[in-house]
Nucleic acid binder design. Structure first.
Lengths: 188, 188
DNA sequence: CACTTATACGGAACATTGTTCCGTTTAGCA
DNA sequence: TGCTAAACGGAACAATGTTCCGTATAAGTG
């Protein structure tokens, strides 16, 4: 692959990420092309359909989010790493206005995203959660998928309201996890 | 209001209902105008925004569905009326590809729809369900909203698959209601 | 019934946006 | 340095929401 092609792909993904976070995933292709400093022809050369670019950005950010897990685990204690990652995950969701709609649109370009989610994010959380449970820092009666869905739903709802609400809600959830630390189930 | 104006509004709502059921709520305005036998200018005279037409069709069909409840209740026994209405409700959802997406789009034109739902459909089901419970034809431990959401979710999922699946699934749900008739809760 | 006018109508024209096409430029190589 | 396949840019096309305005007409009025 030619060096300029790779450069442009990177620039496009970066620009798209920014534009999507600002204007939602429905932003015009031209706007993304302009911010990346390329022509629309270049966009379509690398991403035959608009949706392919959207999916590529999602995949890239899912990976980035998943990759943060081992780093956080290495730099912090198990409970702290779990908390930080959940905030990181919440921040990821927050920049995805229109994600749910896109996922349910039936567009084939998005078909692989749920699997990508499952393949990368669930294991990432799984590891952090298991470590935190093993360290006795959080309760052990909450499932990984359950927790992910909770955070996801929380952020989707919170998007409509004031910014910062997601953070507080997720923090609340984390405190809930810590509250029953070392217990099997039931209220303390 | 001039007679031709009212006539065109009716024709537009009817045409839109048909087109939405066939092509989804994203169908072009021109297509609806043509089927109604009017120009696009007429559409926008009565519905300033495309979304207003969509919302009007939804409201109209919600009303029609709610109005069917007392009719069914008068013509059939309580259990049968409940079953028929649930099928009717399922049929309504089935013609609404894109409803969920529209509802979550954030468009102000759709903001009032959930309230409309709550104000008309929930009471309609409430009455039928209560009557059927009172007659001892169905179990009494299922809530109205719960049941509506179940049917709604069922149909949303079933839309992607073979036609007729919704009907069978709803029928299954109804049999489930009947199975525990006269009991308070728990499995038989 | 003829006349008048406010109302409504139709569809061409405009604006936005996804997508395609092709003449021009350039990276990588011999 | 010169060649060529790959990549680029942006004009042009297509689809669709929306606006505008000249024309037609419903419904009063004399």
């Amino acid at each position: 692959m030619r060096a300029d092609a790779q450069r442009n792909i990177d620039a496009l993904l970066e620009a798209a990420k920014t534009v999507f976070a600002t204007s939602g995933v429905d932003a015009p292709v031209r706007e993304i092309a302009e911010m990346a400093g390329v022509g629309v022809g270049t966009v379509y050369r690398h991403f035959p359909q608009r949706a392919d670019l959207v999916a590529a950005v999602f995949r890239r950010e899912i990976l980035a989010c998943a990759d943060a897990a081992p780093v956080l685990a290495a730099e912090h204690g198990p409970g702290e790493a779990l908390a930080l990652w959940m905030q990181r995950f919440a921040a990821f969701i927050a920049t995805k206005r229109g994600l749910a709609t896109a996922l349910y649109s039936g567009d084939p370009a998005f078909e692989s995203l749920p699997a990508y989610f499952e393949a990368h994010l669930v294991p990432a959380l799984e590891g952090l959660l298991a470590a935190a449970v093993a360290a006795g820092e959080v309760r052990d009666d909450v499932g990984t998928s359950e927790l992910m869905n909770a955070v996801g739903g929380l952020c989707m709802q919170a998007q409509k309201d004031k910014p910062g609400q997601s953070d507080r809600m997720v923090a609340l959830l984390i405190d809930g996890l810590r509250y029953g630390a070392g217990r099997s189930s039931g209220k303390p």
